[in-house]
Amino acid sequence: MTLLAVEGLTKRFGGVLAAKSVSFALDEGEMLAIIGPNGAGKSTTFNMVGGQLRPDGGSVMLAGKDVTGLPSRALCRMGVGRTFQVAQTFLSFSVLGNVQMALLAHHGQTRQLLSDAAVMHRDAALALLDRVGMAAQAGRPIGELAYGDVKRVELAIALAAAPRLLLMDEPTAGMAPSERTALMALVAGIARAERIGVLFTEHDMDAVFAHADRILVLVRGEIIARGSPEEVRADPEVQRVYLGHSGTRAAGRARRPVHG
């Protein structure tokens, strides 16, 4: 079933057309990657879907409801979780506190003046941390964690709102290659088990070709190719404008374990 339907999204910055009538759809439990060279409009498109940017034209439908231009806090309440290129967490909180905070927000309890925040939603928060493999670190200040672990906690924060759609902006940026594979496998596992749709942008071709169900290639604000990883990799236009030599090799390498 179609979860996210994007129709004709358009955005101008000054005279520059950053996104030109971008359309795509995403099903429940599906992982859709947007790739493209720098400045191709990936972030612009992504931020229009995520509520950070208001589109100049077009529409975003979430499970049949028009959510075009809604701010991200409203999207969150409609079931859209979000992770950022540079992990965004609450640095002064513990790992557990970060997830508790997300749960407090999800339950609309942020305006309570007298209850004790430290004891609320502890078990639920621990369960979420357990799902991303971080329960053992629950008591530590999040600032002490390795970056890859911070990204896992960020995923737990996003999951706290029980999202139907996860928006992940370069989920593996800044991580070690081995951590990247593990994080993407974790995301894919959760997405498929819980029928969460995942829309992500990525520079790491290994991550894209190993985990995306479908790929959109964006160049100068337009989608120039779309399809399964195999179709996209075989597209000569994609190879010409984006992948170049080393990228094509990485794209080939990524599937090596699967095929051979």
């Binding site: 060279p37 992948l243 030599h245």
Partner: peptide, 9 residues
């Protein structure tokens, strides 16, 4: 880092 493969070359 962060550059399209053609530019990387």
């Amino acid at each position: 880092e962060g550059l399209a493969p053609v530019i990387v070359e």
